[in-house]
Simulated scan of single mutants.
Amino acid sequence: MQTLKVMVEIPSSLPLLPAAVEVAAYRIVQEAVTNIIRRAHARTCQVRLLAAETLQIEVQDDGTGLGETHQADVGLTSMRERAEELGGSFTLKKASPSGTLLIAHLPLVENSTRTGAHR
């Protein structure tokens, strides 16, 4: 079994996160790292959190990357849904020179228009 080196970069202080954002961020990172371990054949993984108007989550690996016929599985779909339920966004793309880059933006203020968010 290959070892995955995970590096985490976070600001020295984060603003108080709404509970739904906290849970979504945790689950998105958890699923992303799980996918990397299971499928990417990566040696390294970088998890980065940035906070401004949104909580930006970046997860990048140096693995095999997305195939030409890549289809979203349950894990990718759930990550996208978690971000979008909060009024955020989710992007998955090839990283350079290899691997995959996931970027999710989660709003730091509660979106009053959302309904029926999953927990």
Results as ranks from 00 to 15, higher is better:
Ala51Val: 11
His70Asn: 12
Val6His: 04
Ala117Phe: 07
Arg82Lys: 15
Ala104Gly: 02
Ile37Trp: 04
Ser13Leu: 05
Asp73Arg: 06
Ala42Phe: 10
Gly116Trp: 10
Val59Trp: 00
Arg82Glu: 09
Thr113Ile: 11
Ala42Asp: 08
Asp62Cys: 07
Thr115Asp: 09
Glu9Ala: 13
Ala25Leu: 06
Leu66Ala: 08
Ala42Ile: 11
Arg39Cys: 04
Gln60Asp: 08
Ala20Gly: 03
Arg39Val: 12
Ala40Ser: 13
Lys5Arg: 12
Glu53Phe: 09
Phe90Gly: 03
Met79Gly: 02
Arg114Ile: 10
Thr3Asp: 12
Ala72Asn: 07
Lys94Glu: 15
Leu50Tyr: 04
Ala20Leu: 09
Ala20Cys: 12
Arg38Ser: 13
Glu22Ile: 02
Lys94Ser: 14
Ser96Glu: 14
Ala19Trp: 02
Pro11Ala: 00
Val109Gly: 08
Ala51Tyr: 09
Leu4Asp: 09
Glu53Lys: 02
Thr34Ser: 10
Glu84Asp: 04
Gln56Phe: 12
Leu49Pro: 05
Leu76Ser: 02
Leu76Lys: 01
Leu55Asp: 04
Ser96Phe: 12
Ile103Leu: 08
Gly116Gln: 12
His118Glu: 13
Leu4Glu: 10
Thr64Val: 15
Leu106Thr: 03
His41Val: 09
Leu101Glu: 06
Gly67Phe: 02
Thr77Glu: 11
Thr100Val: 14
Asp62His: 09
Phe90Asp: 03
Leu76Phe: 02
Thr91Ala: 13
Ala117Thr: 11
Val109Glu: 11
Leu86Trp: 00
Leu49Phe: 14
Gly87Asn: 01
Gln60Ser: 11
Glu31Ile: 07
Glu53Thr: 12
Ala95Trp: 03
Glu84Thr: 11
Leu4His: 10
Thr100Ser: 11
Lys93Ile: 05
Ile37Gly: 06
Leu55Ser: 01
Glu68Ile: 10
Arg119Met: 06
Glu84Met: 09
Pro97Ile: 10
Gly75Asn: 05
Arg43His: 14
Leu14Ala: 01
Glu68Tyr: 11
Ile10Val: 13
Gln60Tyr: 00
His105Glu: 15
Pro107Asp: 01
Val6Glu: 13
Gly99Glu: 00
Asn35Leu: 06
Val47Arg: 00
Gly75Pro: 04
Val109Phe: 08
Val23Gly: 07
Ala19Gly: 05
Ala52Ser: 15
Gln71Trp: 13
Ala40Phe: 03
Gly63Glu: 07
Leu101Pro: 05
Thr100Gly: 10
